[in-house]
Amino acid sequence: MHEIYTIKNMVCDRCIASVLTIFEGEGFTVESIELGQVNVVKTEKSNQECNLESLSIQLKKNGFEIIKNDKDTLVEKLKIELINAIEAGRTEQLSQDLALRFGKSYSVLSKLFSKTEGVTLEKYSIQLKIEKVKELIQLGQLNFSEIAYSLNYKTSSHLARQFKMVTGVSMTEYKNAKEWNRKTIDKII
């Protein structure tokens, strides 16, 4: 028998390792784990009901949380899908891809996301992109045009305008300042 836990704020491989350590430390047998989800084997001998409160406390101490309702689960899955799409450079038809992936219209997904998180899906994805731009600027391997192209912007000037609107500084100013005030992905909202 299995039980699946949806976990809020799992956004990277280090998060997966941390959550796995917490679950195993609390005596859970983890069958599989991926961003936002832990599949646990339930056994008759397990004391999982007793450990659930302790597990929740340990997760919260490390910035994670067990999600208990379907709407919050869907929002967390949307976040993970957006993070993965931006990392993979799959942002060209994002609204259509999300609608197909989740079997709901983009407007329904966006309304749910906005109601739950207080920001639209579009603004959230822009914030994710800007943090990715900051990372790419910091790495110094791509010029601004290449960064724009890698994130599927039509022109580098569109990215430049959006970057300045979100951060308050130009990409050149950001690069020259070398004050890498980046946000972690789980702190964007």
Rank of each mutant, 00 (worst) to 15 (best):
K178G: 13
Y106N: 04
K115C: 03
N152Q: 10
L136Y: 03
A88I: 10
K134T: 02
L112K: 10
H2M: 13
L139R: 14
D97A: 14
K8H: 13
S18Q: 15
V38A: 09
D97E: 12
T43C: 08
L98H: 02
I185S: 01
Y153D: 02
E3T: 13
I86Q: 03
T43S: 13
S107F: 06
D186C: 15
N39P: 01
K164M: 12
E117T: 08
I7G: 00
E173Y: 12
F113L: 07
S157A: 14
L109I: 01
L59Y: 03
Y5E: 06
I16Y: 05
S54T: 11
L94I: 15
R90G: 04
R182P: 00
L82W: 00
F23K: 05
V30K: 08
G103D: 02
I33G: 02
E34K: 15
E31V: 15
I83E: 01
L35K: 15
L139M: 12
K68E: 11
K129G: 03
G89K: 07
K79I: 11
E44D: 08
G118P: 06
L151I: 08
V11N: 00
I189W: 09
A85N: 07
L139A: 13
K104V: 00
Q48A: 11
I67Q: 00
I185V: 11
Y5H: 03
V119K: 13
S156H: 12
I130P: 01
I83T: 01
L151R: 06
N143C: 15
E92A: 10
I22S: 04
S156W: 08
H158W: 07
V19W: 04
R14K: 15
E34L: 10
I57H: 05
A85M: 06
N181M: 10
N84R: 15
L142I: 03
W180E: 07
L159T: 00
G27A: 08
K71L: 04
A85T: 05
E3V: 15
L55E: 00
V11W: 02
I185K: 00
K129Y: 03
A99M: 02
Q162I: 04
V40Q: 00
N51C: 12
L159R: 00
K60S: 14
E53C: 09
D13C: 12
N51I: 06
M10E: 05
T167E: 06
N69K: 10
E87F: 15
L100G: 05
E146T: 07
Q48V: 01
Q138Y: 11
K175I: 05
N181S: 10
K134Y: 03
N84A: 10
K178P: 05
I130F: 05
G118I: 14
G118A: 10
A99N: 04
W180A: 07
C12T: 09
K154L: 11
L55F: 09
E49H: 10
T21H: 13
A88H: 14
S56R: 14
K77G: 06
G89T: 07
F144C: 05
A99G: 09
N143R: 01
I83M: 11
V38W: 05
K8G: 05
